[in-house]
Design a protein around this nucleic acid. Structure first.
Length: 225
DNA sequence: GCGACAG
DNA sequence: ATCTTGTCGC
């Protein structure tokens, strides 16, 4: 994979190392119908402040979707952003934030892709393996694959495919608003992932877990900075 | 060879 | 992700 024109050219040696690590983690990813009885649903997101990263985790009840907990962790960013290797930059701090939760969620919705990734290991999948927890990815933009624009009415779904594989779905979670790209991360399947993304999308484009994590990332950011 | 590229 | 102005609609 090459890289966007506006981004600093990644170090070839670093990319080689990270690619090897991704392969090992990818082999641990499990795609299956989740076996949990969904009661607590978490959402996570990160924001940046200079050389530091602020990661947030929120936990909501299911199916009520009431916020019951929110935590954050602030630390230095060790890795540069390289398309396809986002997890190496954000996952470490997300794991630290996750450790601060008092409650144990049954599933985590991550801001980014799951297996809808060039090597099938987006940040949602990688985080799932690191935490040994069911995860699903909800991204605002496509990274890999082809798709048709879903109809403009909420609920419209279109498949995201890559190399003959159905790696995710493009979902219109709100009328006339750009769709989101969802894919299973770990210990999840595409069907459940798609259903939950829609079920938890209320009056906004993003499902509640991810939307609230995104929201509190801004709130905490103001408190920290 | 020419694009495209999560956050 | 972040920077950054005005503008449209509920």
């Amino acid at each position: 994979m090459a890289w966007p024109p506006h981004l600093p050219p990644p170090d070839p040696q670093l990319v080689r190392t990270l690619t090897e690590q991704q392969e090992k983690l990818r082999q641990q990813v499990v795609l299956q119908k989740p076996d949990f009885d969904l009661k607590l649903l978490a959402g996570c997101d990160s924001s940046f402040i200079g050389e530091n990263i602020l990661s947030v985790f929120v936990v909501l009840t299911y199916p009520e979707l009431e916020l019951v907990e929110k935590v954050w962790h602030y630390g230095p960013v060790e890795m540069p952003y390289i398309p396809g290797f986002l997890a190496f930059r954000e996952a470490p701090n997300l794991v630290q934030a996750y450790g601060k939760l008092e409650r144990t969620p049954d599933l985590i919705m991550v801001d980014g892709h799951g297996i809808a990734h060039p090597r099938r290991l987006g940040i949602a999948s990688q985080l799932g393996v690191l935490l040994n927890k069911p995860t699903m990815g909800v991204a605002k933009k496509v990274l890999t694959g082809k798709f048709e624009e879903p109809a403009s009415v909420k609920g419209s779904i279109t498949p995201l495919t890559h190399r003959q594989e159905h790696i995710g779905n493009v979902i219109r979670t709100k009328d006339k608003v750009k769709p989101v790209f969802v894919s299973p991360g770990h210990l999840m399947d595409l069907e459940t992932t798609t259903a939950l993304a829609l079920q938890t999308s209320l009056k906004h484009k993003l499902p509640e877990p991810t939307r609230l994590a995104d929201h509190y990332a801004e709130v905490f950011k103001a408190e920290v900075g």
